[in-house]
């Protein structure tokens, strides 16, 4: 019988085990995996490849839109692979099954976020491979590294937004609600189609949306004309992350009250 905690007090072992398990679950969930891998590739083929000979924001439009759809893929991974998945677990009881272990909720969330990051990374790599092999558009290691270095940490506010929606919406409606929020935001931020072609009111709305700043971080990483200093994008994303952290904590408390 152990009466005292063993010398093992580090959170590393439970964290690694949780993250590994969550990643396995994401990779085995075909309903999630197939769209996450295929949709960015399909969108890129429809809008990116045909425009590859033009210039956008001062760089090759093919490369620009490759970054756009990488951003799209990471945002949807954060929203759906994380937020909506948490909602489904809340309905299924798996979340409660983890809640009764000694793993603190922050550790469980951290592991889920890490698994989503890895999943996002995989979908971006698949997209880049497709763009290179099929469209002969290679980002190059340095540019890809720069894009990922900015976009992976930039996923945090979207993961927290997904979590809020997942906790607030009825479990089986969470996916639909997240789409309802994500799709207009992606259009209005220049991720789906470049803002140059968007109506004026959308162009004036865009700088207030998190996906716009997320996109800016990605595009400037491959040398596109910046729209403001880089730090302003980080401040916007951090601000949104803080807001969505508060809303998700509030939503978590609310769902706990309802059992």
């Amino acid at each position: 019988m152990t009466t005292l905690a063993s010398p093992f007090t580090s959170a590393l072992r439970p964290f690694v085990a949780l993250a590994r398990t969550e990643l396995l679950r994401l990779l085995r969930n075909r309903a999630l995996l197939v769209p996450a891998l295929l949709l960015p590739i399909i969108f890129f083929s429809l809008w990116g490849l045909p425009n590859a000979r033009y210039t956008l924001g001062g760089v090759n439009a093919g490369r620009y839109m490759l970054v756009s759809y990488a951003a799209y893929s990471l945002i949807s991974t954060a929203l759906f692979g994380f937020g909506v998945a948490v909602a489904a677990e809340r309905a299924s009881g798996w979340w409660r099954q983890l809640q009764i272990t000694p793993a603190p909720p922050a550790l469980i969330f951290g592991a889920k976020i890490t698994a989503s990051l890895v999943m996002g990374l995989l979908s971006v790599l698949a997209l880049c491979l497709f763009a290179g092999l099929v469209g002969h558009i290679w980002l190059g290691a340095a540019d890809l590294g720069g894009v990922l270095l900015r976009l992976l940490p930039g996923m945090v506010p979207f993961a927290l937004l997904g979590l809020t929606l997942g906790l607030l919406a009825p479990p089986d409606a969470a996916g639909g609600v997240a789409n309802l929020v994500a799709l207009p935001m992606l259009f209005a931020s220049g991720i789906f189609v470049p803002l140059d072609t968007a109506p004026d009111f959308i162009r004036s709305l865009a700088p207030y949306l998190p996906a716009y700043h997320f996109g800016q971080l990605g595009w400037t990483a491959i040398g596109a004309k910046p729209a403001g200093a880089e730090w302003t994008h980080w401040v916007w994303l951090a601000g949104y992350a803080a807001v969505f952290l508060l809303t998700s904590l509030w939503a978590a408390r609310r769902s706990e009250m309802r059992r």
């Binding site: 072992r13 439970p14 690694v16 398990t21």
Partner: peptide, 9 residues
């Protein structure tokens, strides 16, 4: 295996 990793002993 997951659960075993969540407990100290």
């Amino acid at each position: 295996r997951l659960y075993a990793a969540l407990y100290p002993a």
